[in-house]
């Protein structure tokens, strides 16, 4: 149901060509996006110590090695604590920031938007040292809480940006109508604004999560003796890229795809219901 086009009769050659071209491009785009992932997955099942052609035959040795090595799995566990918590906190803070800059005019409004982005601009190396200095003085260095606190600083920017983009599409009349109907501003926020921004918040959370999940320089400095996954991966690199890394990347990729797929299929009814009326009408 490519809705952009109004059906003008049973056969619309131009429309058909455009849709076909669009889907072909989509397929090509996905080939590009998936190329390194597939490469990585294939080499996780190859005997090769170093990824190169020709392959040396299929093998599960890197998976066996991975499960004998508790360091990587422990690190994965740490990452699975840090990233969701950091992403959630960042989404809450990001939502307030986006809402504040969207609705209110206050002194320093522009400065706030910029300040939230600045952490992304500073080379992580220096930020990592500075964070470590701060956390040491709070006796928080080397704790997962410390990693979470710093990740929130880092990933609030992308979360805010996505939520801002979504809020910018909200007609002001929507919230005003709620007020007119007697809602308090908090009620309007919870019943009207948050549902409207839900897609943006979800997108922001996802982005914040992925940034946090992959962050390694700052994590290295603040994680102490309990590394997150990228930090553990990083310390493997002094020797060489151990294909167990490909194995764990494959597992993470497959598991997260399954989780997303499952969530998508389970949540589908709600999502369909939450669609904007405009689109439903067109479809």
């Amino acid at each position: 149901m490519p809705a952009v086009v109004i059906p003008r009769g049973p056969v619309d050659g131009e429309r058909f060509a455009l849709v076909a071209a669009g889907r072909a491009y989509l397929a090509l785009g996905f080939v590009f996006l998936m190329l390194p992932i597939v490469t990585l997955i294939v080499f996780s099942f190859q005997r090769n110590q170093y990824a190169s052609l020709p392959g040396q035959g299929w093998s599960l040795r890197w998976y066996v090695k991975l499960f004998q090595d508790d360091a990587l799995l422990a690190a994965l566990k740490n990452s699975l604590i840090v990233s969701p918590v950091a992403a959630t906190a960042a989404s809450v803070i990001g939502f307030f920031a986006a809402y504040a800059t969207h609705r209110f005019v206050f002194p320093g409004r522009a400065a706030l938007s910029i300040l939230l982005v600045v952490p992304v601009l500073i080379p992580p190396l220096i930020l990592g040292i500075a964070f470590l200095g701060l956390l040491s003085r709070l006796s928080l260095q080397g704790q997962l809480l410390g990693v979470i606190l710093t990740h929130v600083v880092l990933v609030t920017a992308p979360a805010t940006a996505i939520i801002q983009l979504r809020l910018a599409q909200m007609p002001p009349s929507l919230e005003e109508a709620a007020w007119n109907l007697g809602a308090s501003e908090w009620q309007a926020l919870v019943r009207v604004v948050v549902p409207f921004a839900a897609a943006g918040i979800a997108g922001g959370w996802l982005l914040a999560f992925t940034f946090s999940f992959d962050e390694f320089v700052i994590s290295w400095f603040v994680s102490g003796f309990d590394p997150t996954l990228p930090v553990a991966i990083y310390s493997y690199l002094v020797g060489s890229a151990d294909p167990s890394l490909n194995a764990i990347a494959t597992l993470v990729f497959v598991l997260s795809s399954l989780v997303l797929l499952g969530a998508e299929l389970l949540l589908m009814p709600f999502i369909v219901r939450a669609r904007r009326p405009g689109r439903a009408a067109v479809a």
Binding site: L138, S139, Q143, L144, L145, D226
Partner: peptide
């Protein structure tokens, strides 16, 4: 802050 240390093995 120290008392907030939720994850403290």
């Amino acid at each position: 802050w120290s008392s907030l240390t939720i994850i403290n093995k």
